[in-house]
Computed example of a mutant assay.
Amino acid sequence: MKLAKLLNDAGNPCVGRVSDSSVEVIDLSAGNFTCLSALLAAPDVLAAAEALPATGEQFSIQDARLLPPIDQQEVWAAGVTYKRSQTARMEESEAAASCYDRVYNSPRPEIFFKATPHRVRGHGDALRIREDSAWNVPEPELTLVLSPKLKIVGFTIGNDMSSRDIEGDNPLYLPQAKMYDQCCGLGPWITLTASMPAKEDIEIDLKITRDGKIVFDQATRATEMARTFEDLLSWLGRDNSFPAGAFLLTGTGIVPNSDFTLAPRDQVNISISGIGTLSNSIVQG
């Protein structure tokens, strides 16, 4: 089952069950749920979602006004979990190369805070490249949807926008390279855990279009990750709590070469098996 957050006919946020061609709005109040994150915190999310009655409103996927599937959860991210990411980070900065080399092989992963909800955008929205950066890339990432108890209840697509020149100048600038308005894409919806394919069958594909032409096209697989989901969660949860739940972007295995940078009006499309496609345009300034 897939769950989307969207606007209903009255322009109010609501939650819907996604089929192949449409989104059926469901009545959260019938289960005493106040929002999507409350439903995701249920002991059995699938059973709870299946039991909720439909409101009668239904939209085609094309016409649905989708919102990012987040309420008040925090968004975190893991870095250097793929070999390609390690290589790219070492290319950014000779001074920081040893740091990225060591973290790839270290028992402790790189985990950092990515975004608050107001910095997140959904399917069809614009993501931002920083005005003070000249080297920017999207980072397509399989994203874990976590309950307050850090149980994996679903998966979505994440775009961890990154300013490579800022981070490469000094690794201490990572927060500025990663965290700013419109720095993170999530969506288009959440696929509950039971409906996801096995990890070995999950492909992650990135296509970037500029002036109607594809200027970047590459894919990888979730099995290329050097760490397990459980390992990342065990570190995220150390001395940490998440009352509203969280999203964890699990790292990227696709990084464009050093001669590529995003430009305003580019279109970024990230497709992941079992979920769908997250599409965002790019703005700057």
Rank of each mutant, 00 (worst) to 15 (best):
D9M: 00
L28G: 02
A38N: 09
T193M: 13
T34G: 08
H118F: 08
V153D: 00
V137I: 15
G16V: 07
F229W: 13
D20T: 10
S147A: 05
A64P: 09
T87E: 14
E230I: 01
V75C: 13
L142T: 06
T220R: 01
S234A: 15
K5I: 01
N269T: 06
R108E: 12
F33Q: 04
Y173M: 14
T81H: 14
D231V: 08
N136T: 11
P69F: 12
P53G: 07
A194G: 12
D132N: 14
R221E: 05
F229S: 14
I282C: 11
L233T: 02
S279H: 02
G31I: 06
A51S: 11
I272L: 08
S37A: 14
K114H: 01
K207H: 03
G212S: 12
A88T: 06
K151P: 00
A4H: 01
Y100A: 08
G154N: 06
A41L: 05
P109I: 06
I111Q: 10
M1I: 12
T116E: 11
V145C: 10
G274N: 04
T223W: 11
T81M: 12
C99P: 00
Q86W: 05
A222Q: 12
F59L: 01
T209C: 13
D101G: 09
E92V: 01
E203H: 09
Q182C: 14
L146S: 00
R265V: 09
L28R: 09
D201F: 13
G79V: 07
A95K: 13
V215G: 08
N136R: 04
S163V: 02
I275T: 09
S98H: 09
T191Y: 04
K199E: 15
L142M: 09
T252S: 13
P109A: 04
M90R: 15
S241Q: 02
Y173S: 13
D259L: 01
P188E: 11
V215C: 09
P175T: 01
L186C: 07
S163H: 03
V145T: 10
P171H: 10
G158H: 08
D9S: 13
G31Y: 03
F155N: 07
M196T: 01
S279A: 03
D125T: 04
D239T: 15
D201C: 07
S195V: 04
E200M: 13
V18T: 01
E74S: 01
G212L: 11
S271T: 11
A64F: 07
K2W: 02
D181P: 02
D266Y: 00
G154V: 03
L36G: 04
G253Q: 12
I204L: 15
P109R: 05
N12A: 14
D20W: 07
V283D: 03
T87Y: 13
G79H: 10
I282V: 11
L52W: 11
P107S: 05
G79S: 03
Q86Y: 00
C184Q: 10
F155Y: 15
I282Y: 05
R128L: 13
L3V: 00
N32T: 07
Q58L: 04
P140C: 11
K149M: 07
D44V: 07
S234N: 15
L186A: 04
E167K: 02
D160R: 05
P256G: 10
V153Y: 06
I70D: 11
Q86N: 02
G122L: 06
V18E: 10
N257E: 15
